[in-house]
Simulated assay, not measured.
Amino acid sequence: MNFNFLSPVSDLVLAHNELLSPQALGRKIKIHSEQNGIPDLEGVNVAILGVLENRNDVDYIGEEFQLNEIRKSFYSLFPGSWNTMVADLGDIEKGESVEDTYFALKEATGILVKKKIIPLIIGGSQDLTYANYRAYDALIPMVNVVNVDAQFNLGDSTKPIKNNSFVGKIILDKPYNLFNYANIGYQTYFNSQEEIDLMDSLYFELYRLGEVSKDITIVEPAMRDAHIVSIDLNAVKGSEVSVRQRFSPNGLDGKEICAIARYAGISNKVSSFGIYEYKPSKDDEMTAMLVAQMLWYFVEGVNYRVKDDDFSGDSSYQKFTTLTEDHELVFYKSNKTGRWWIEIPFLSEVNNKLKKHTLLPCMHQDYLDACNNKVPERWYKAYRKNSV
């Protein structure tokens, strides 16, 4: 397998790893080392992929960075009772140009996803999400993206891509493969009203920080429907991270961001997961350990995946039909997990993206709302999007 653009995990990290308890994660995972080369990926479920690219950061001033502290923190944690095999494939170094780095990330993601291995991308600037998204051009026809971020990063899509404009590129660049986009944890004062209105007019899903902090479970259905999850560390509040990493006094706390990572892991659809905007500094045990714990919770989630979205056998689910003023809504509840879905009808007269009834993940609360004549917002947006 051609991964010759990957550089091995540094000897410094490997030496540190040797001193850890034999039960620690670092002693149980497969690691790309100078000495042994790229590990055999047989049986691997999740692969860590560092990307040392930050040149499209709007604040880039030539600084280099590395991921050694994150690796040391992650290796030092203890695994749960997992059957999930993790590999650390090392790093994609900066290419001659940023496009070269994008190409390498796209190739690596494509190879791993085809092999049913989930890439865990730890990156510099978040525009790398665009390269991650483009890997799916050759994989599946329509892609759902979830971005955990304080800002929308729409930017001006006519200008070259930056870490504050990559979402605009994902929406507007051909081939158009984006089906649904959800932002989790946005903070209103960081986004212009025009951008918020644009997101609404495209029927994308927006979850404000306040809503998420009030009830973290509202993000689970969006995660269950996502193929790509991208997390900007700037969505985390300043008190949880090191001085250089601080962005805003408000944001998700450590517990919330780890819960979000676990929801992403548990989702049967999520096939790539990225954490971006890491800025190491001398006092940086905090951020490195937080990223390590997010990775841990993601792998924990993957370990507990349950195939509960196959509704072919009648015994696997219960079906509920409700009537609101304008619509008949059909809900499904999995007997295995108790998770809920709602049916989006196929509109035959419209040349829509869905060619059959599609099931949209939802919450029990959506069913209760529908019983009280209230149409769930996620259903309404998906229904409208298919009518466009």
Results as ranks from 00 to 15, higher is better:
residue 328 E to H: 06
residue 150 A to P: 10
residue 128 L to D: 12
residue 120 L to E: 01
residue 345 P to N: 10
residue 45 N to K: 08
residue 27 R to A: 06
residue 386 N to P: 11
residue 140 I to N: 00
residue 110 G to A: 01
residue 311 F to Q: 03
residue 160 P to K: 00
residue 50 G to T: 12
residue 271 S to T: 04
residue 224 R to F: 06
residue 141 P to V: 11
residue 143 V to Q: 03
residue 255 K to A: 11
residue 139 L to V: 06
residue 154 L to G: 01
residue 327 H to M: 02
residue 328 E to L: 07
residue 246 R to H: 04
residue 356 K to S: 15
residue 45 N to Q: 11
residue 156 D to L: 11
residue 196 I to N: 09
residue 50 G to E: 06
residue 328 E to K: 07
residue 367 Y to M: 00
residue 340 W to I: 10
residue 244 R to K: 14
residue 234 N to M: 09
residue 229 V to D: 12
residue 17 N to P: 00
residue 153 N to D: 15
residue 277 E to P: 12
residue 27 R to K: 07
residue 274 G to Q: 13
residue 309 D to M: 06
residue 335 N to C: 10
residue 34 E to D: 05
residue 334 S to C: 05
residue 304 Y to M: 14
residue 36 N to K: 02
residue 311 F to N: 01
residue 44 V to G: 13
residue 331 F to Q: 05
residue 165 S to V: 09
residue 344 I to C: 09
residue 256 E to Y: 13
residue 182 A to F: 02
residue 258 C to T: 15
residue 368 L to R: 02
residue 26 G to A: 03
residue 325 E to H: 06
residue 386 N to W: 11
residue 296 W to N: 06
residue 7 S to T: 14
residue 109 T to S: 13
residue 28 K to W: 07
residue 43 G to E: 05
residue 85 M to E: 15
residue 210 G to Y: 11
residue 144 N to P: 04
residue 159 K to N: 08
residue 370 A to G: 05
residue 137 D to R: 02
residue 114 K to C: 04
residue 258 C to R: 14
residue 31 I to L: 01
residue 97 S to R: 05
residue 194 E to Y: 00
residue 356 K to E: 12
residue 322 T to H: 06
residue 305 R to I: 00
residue 106 K to P: 00
residue 161 I to C: 05
residue 283 D to R: 13
residue 245 Q to E: 15
residue 356 K to R: 14
residue 182 A to Y: 08
residue 84 T to C: 14
residue 170 I to E: 09
residue 78 F to V: 07
residue 11 D to F: 04
residue 351 N to D: 09
residue 263 Y to N: 02
residue 250 N to E: 15
residue 30 K to A: 04
residue 122 I to A: 12
residue 33 S to A: 03
residue 208 R to T: 12
residue 197 D to I: 01
